[in-house]
């Protein structure tokens, strides 16, 4: 975080390209004061948003950082997410409705995607007849309401037309990534319904770091962070 704040300050100054030594850089980095509590909040925000409930609980005890939502809601949210990831979409829908019936009632796109995922799972399990009936009864009316839903529905039903689905043009729907996509959409909707931001702050901060370094690259030679996992400062003279 200190690195980002510092970088932005440097960019704003708009100096001509100059060389900053590692020593000088570290000295200046030390001048940027970041409160420990803010760092902790960032970590807690990450744990809560990503659903690491046990870690969040431990971190709360150890650091005294209070999460901004009731930790028990994380368990419910994770259960929904996991159900989608395992292909138990109907179970997931019931769980979301128990959590808050408004979510699917006011979010037609998410509701459609969950129903679409249900259809995909039926097709995956070779229940062709059930799949057709389900598409007709549940999904076709949604397609009538919305043109883009209709297109997605047609793409999904196309799965039934191929002998070897793994090699067909719409085969990506059967990938694990499709389940993950749907799961993260539900996860985001639940977080929003709990007045919580749907993305953790930490990754955006890293994105800002990368952006700021790219900007600064044009103006100065300085100790960059190349490896984000270690956050090690590279020596500018070495490159």
């Amino acid at each position: 975080m200190a690195q980002v704040t510092f970088l932005v300050k440097l960019i704003m100054r708009g100096s001509s390209k100059k060389v900053i030594t590692k020593e000088d850089w570290e000295k200046r980095l030390n001048d940027v004061k970041i409160r420990k509590e803010d760092m902790n909040k960032l970590v807690m925000n990450f744990l809560v948003t990503e659903g690491f409930v046990d870690a969040a609980e431990k971190f709360r005890k150890e650091s005294g950082t209070e999460p901004d939502i009731d930790l028990s809601t994380i368990t419910d949210r994770m259960a929904v997410k996991k159900a989608v990831q395992c292909g138990n979409v109907e179970d997931a829908i019931e769980k979301v409705n128990d959590l808050n019936p408004e979510i699917l009632d006011t979010n037609p796109q998410l509701f459609f995607h969950l129903q679409q995922q249900r259809l995909i799972e039926l097709i995956r399990n070779g229940k062709v007849e059930e799949a057709l009936e389900f598409a007709q009864e549940e999904l076709a009316p949604r397609g009538e309401e919305n043109q883009s839903f209709l297109e997605e529905l047609e793409r999904t039903v196309a799965l039934l037309a191929f002998e070897d689905v793994s090699n067909c043009p719409v085969g990506d729907l059967l990938d694990m990534s499709q389940r993950l996509k749907t799961a993260s959409e539900v996860n985001a909707a639940i977080l929003t319904s709990q007045s919580h931001e749907k993305d953790p702050k930490l990754p955006s901060l890293l994105k800002m770091l990368v952006w700021a370094q790219n900007q600064l690259d044009e103006k100065a030679i300085y100790p960059r962070i190349k490896d984000l996992s270690t956050a090690k400062l590279e020596d500018p003279s070495a490159s």
């Binding site: 409705n97 019936p101 699917l104 009316p141 309401e145």
Partner: peptide
């Protein structure tokens, strides 16, 4: 009933 009607206008 609840699970059938939520999100489903029809």
């Amino acid at each position: 009933l609840k699970n059938q009607i939520i999100g489903n206008r029809t």
